[in-house]
Design a binder for these strands. Sequence first.
DNA 1: GTGAAAGCGCTAACAG
DNA 2: CTGTTAGCGCTTTCAC
Lengths: 344, 344
Amino acid sequence: MTGIRRLAQHLDISIGTVSRALNGRPDVNEETRRRVLQAATELGYVPNQSGRSLRQGTTNIIGFMMQTGTEITGQGDTFFMSVFDGIQTVFARHRLDLVALLCSSSEDPDDYLKRVVARGFADGLILSATQRHDPRFEFLAKRKIPFVTLGRSLTDVGQPWLDLDFEGMAQISIDRLVARGHRRIAVTRPHDDVNLGHLFVDQSARALAGHGLALDPELIFSSLPNEAGGYQVARQLLAMTDRPTAILLVNETIAIGFYRGLSEAGVKPGRDIAIIGRQSPQSHFLSPSLTGFTLSRRDLGIALAEALLATMPAFSHLYPDADPRKVWSEDLIEGESDAHTLPA
Amino acid sequence: MTGIRRLAQHLDISIGTVSRALNGRPDVNEETRRRVLQAATELGYVPNQSGRSLRQGTTNIIGFMMQTGTEITGQGDTFFMSVFDGIQTVFARHRLDLVALLCSSSEDPDDYLKRVVARGFADGLILSATQRHDPRFEFLAKRKIPFVTLGRSLTDVGQPWLDLDFEGMAQISIDRLVARGHRRIAVTRPHDDVNLGHLFVDQSARALAGHGLALDPELIFSSLPNEAGGYQVARQLLAMTDRPTAILLVNETIAIGFYRGLSEAGVKPGRDIAIIGRQSPQSHFLSPSLTGFTLSRRDLGIALAEALLATMPAFSHLYPDADPRKVWSEDLIEGESDAHTLPA
DNA sequence: GTGAAAGCGCTAACAG
DNA sequence: CTGTTAGCGCTTTCAC
């Protein structure tokens, strides 16, 4: 005898009543409810999730899909941890649990997702690392699984998304650098087909065009979105005969490696080259200080969670005006890495 | 009509046979099995996890419990991402899925764990951030949930564990620094009651004693296990009248902040102070280069997975000589941060 | 080698 | 307000 049955027997009432009492149904005698709740605490009873899921067709679990292995993630160390924390403050209100679905680097993400969905693992999903064309979206839409993505894509099935304002970052950065006399400006982009790379490079080109300048294809540096990638970019850049005078770093993590690569050659940010990047817990400790964009990861998480809940039938009424698609703008923190002005 | 029932109807055989065919039971006609497997692929059938779990009492899921929020983890995402990747190479052989159980920073870890277990969420667990006294161990042992911990604890219920060799790091570091003429050596430790802090500080003291030296309590710096914590330590250290000549950094992430704090005061590692720390993707790009310990996170993950499986009845026969408790030693990579020798 | 049927723990519909 | 019961999808006896 185990589970709800044991609890019922212990209290000498039926399992139906126990279930109703625990699930807050109104049609239960308050005294009965009190006894049930107390006994549940005493005996440490918690409903078995499998039984409940099987019956209700829901799991109360939301999955955040991410790839494991270090080269891939691209966000800095604690990026996701902070986002998770924001998500959870929202989910806690609805007794939803967030788990990270870890797709091994040796498994195809699309296959992994299919498996997770078919198993009925989660009630909703959050996808990150959205690709320029992302088949996962279509699959989920066909299966009518609620999901939200952190990142846009050319694939559009009407799902909600949140994304950082890469166009805004590009525009502001370019305007700022041009105003300081820079004409030869480089940009970085991730090596793979993740969507943000396209957004960032394209908008940089447009912004430059607005000033009558062109984005030299030689000045688009592809890199792994990690420290080593940044170091590589620095080496490549330093080897050029006609070096850029400024560069935009699109990934958070690459600044550290990039700085190191420069310093080995005695090239100093804010004097010999202008850098605009993104703030992170690590970049905070670079010297000269980095001029870069910052955002509240926690707030981003909260918005992600609300956007997802707004698409789930069971919760949508609670989030009537959650923004289904939103570009999340970031603030520029001025540092010393682009402090100098070029002579005219 | 859905699930296995639909598949059976489609093939015009019974659901029992379908189940047996899919689960590789021997008592199935090979031709039948072939048809079932093919139909399953065509229709994209994957067994519902809740139904299966309810029946079998297992979930085929292993949970890795971690706390969200940035200050707490101390290790970066990338640390865990690499460990996960190692774990998954082992689990893939047994069709086990690894998920990260994300305990919100606002929830008590012990309560969270109870909830997860009672729900029957996972067949086994991996715990990190082990505390000096960790009630989670006793709880899991009582419930007979297989688990392994990344980190030791004074709490001992006979569970398997893996841990980094903090004593070895302390001993080697101290010996090395003393040999270079250092007598006044500082150590860091995490601010909370995580077990590794105790191990590291205690062994440092013993190692010093071996050289006839004492660990000055003033030279034990508690810090948040992140970049900001390292910066704080540097500030405190610089403010002292009788500064140490060397320091051991126990956390991976603090080196960056610590370097920055020093450089603001013009204090240079390897000249004005000796530093021994731990290598990480970020520390790789510090200058002067950090002398520090390194390990293969992926191999650590593999060992963790094997240690866990060795305790699970369903798999133990496959891992007869997995080491149930192992201190994982790290290699010292010589850098420039402790290059100098003190005058006698 | 296959089909029929029980039952895992739970919730919801229905009867009282 | 409470008890009884069907059935969620699946695996596993037990007959045949």
